[in-house]
Design a binder for these strands. Structure first.
Lengths: 242, 242
DNA sequence: CGATCGTTTGATCCGCATCAAGATAGGTGG
DNA sequence: CCACCTATCTTGATGCGGATCAAACGATCG
């Protein structure tokens, strides 16, 4: 059943793609996962809300989860989009936050495994491998965040979109020569911190650097041209394969 | 000598302010620190450069260190400003990066303790307290970064400056009714991701919400007015004391 | 077939970057 | 002590990118 749920998704999850369990034997990983409780969450449902007490740690088995903040004046910022293998809430737990600082919402139907937050505290003490992985996950999150700040500060909307598409191809293992966007354009726009209109207007300009978009379908015809157009701005990641 | 260097700074360092050693007895902390090597770094000197191999882990004893990225087209982004008690390079180490992705430069004359990067790996295995603190430090960094992304996305230049000044008062334990900026305006501007001109122009508008600036001197006359002007945008931190 | 959701396109406006020129202050040497 | 210099900051004028408001368009669905 565990295997079925973990692997019977659109994209199978190789063990290397569960960062928290990297380097563990498959059997060992599965027995750890069995200590948690499955829970499913239909599309659009809120998993937890900003301000709710932090009680669990989650591993995503399938589907997509969106984390977002809501400012008092009603503006929403999507801060993360999580898919298979990602972990949720480790930051709140290690920072001793007793309340969530983001809302979490299911974008597509989601299945996740939940663990009491104490479980995580125990595992990092017991398993050196889990500890090491946890540190790497946290470090990685910070680095990605830093890259994001840098991009937001130096890149135009056009470049942000091009960069996002490139990253998506890698992260979702898509064929650059023709693929479907895995989620809605509005979601991507909020993730990139821009208005839907601005996002939409970028298509015509993107054609200029060899990216054709029609509906949900995207074709990146000339990856190197894109690279060249964007790379002048996207600097430091090259020093660190993440 | 250790004590002198650690405490003979403009602002003494209470043990609570060294996040990596929080909860340790003073003696225990000092004996750990003695395993490192002191090294001093005069103003303007580069501690390490983007792309340099990662060899050490650092704890700041005094002075101010600026981390910044440099994009291929020459634009500089200040990503962090570190002072007494802060740790540098844990992210690179835990992410197994073999090259620095930031430049590090001494803003004021700096004294730091350096440890081989293996030292850090060993200590987190040996000391449960250090491990716990390390996780907290990493989680905290990520959260602060996230807050930064949110601020950059939702706040105007004016609000960013007001917010920064408020944070600085808390972080440096200053008297809001009248204090000197601890570093240059240009540095602050690059840290806030805005041009010096924009930063400069904010003074006149800040007067409108009760903040008077003359040279390096700042007076926040009406903290609650500032709070009100900014808080509508600065949301999620209230759920998490960091 | 209308209704709703998600997206595109158009027109306008504002904030910040940019370029350019002055102002202030700290430091040095005569 | 003053003249000069350089670093740092302020102020002014202008232009562009993206937000905002508004309306049309296309798909999906009951």
């Amino acid at each position: 059943m565990l295997q079925r749920l973990l692997f019977n998704t659109a994209q199978p999850v190789p063990i290397k793609d569960m960062p928290l369990f990297a380097g563990l034997a498959e059997s060992e990983r599965d027995s750890l996962l069995k200590e948690g409780r499955f829970c499913s969450c239909p599309r659009k449902k809120i998993l937890f809300r900003q301000g709710d007490p932090v009680t669990h740690f989650y591993v995503v088995c399938s589907g997509t989860v969106r984390l977002f903040h809501e400012t008092p004046d009603g503006c929403e910022i999507t801060t993360d989009i999580f898919t298979v293998g990602d972990t949720i809430c480790e930051m709140e737990i290690f920072q001793f936050c007793n309340a969530h600082f983001s809302h979490a919402e299911a974008v597509h139907d989601v299945v996740l495994i939940e663990f009491p937050k104490l479980w995580l505290e125990e595992k990092i003490q017991q398993h050196k491998m889990i500890l090491r992985n946890m540190l790497t996950v946290l470090a990685r999150r910070t680095i990605l965040r830093e890259a994001e700040v840098e991009r937001q500060a130096t890149m135009s909307a056009l470049q942000l979109v091009a960069c996002f598409l490139q990253h998506m191809v890698v992260a979702h293992d898509l064929d650059a020569r023709g693929f479907e966007l895995p989620y809605s354009k509005s979601l991507i726009a909020t993730r990139l911190g821009m208005e839907l209109e601005t996002f939409s207007r970028s298509w015509s300009k993107l054609r200029g650097i060899g990216i054709a978009v029609k509906g949900k379908n995207v074709q990146i015809n000339n990856p190197s041209a894109v690279e060249q157009h964007v790379c002048g701005r996207c600097s430091f990641m090259e020093h660190c394969r993440v």
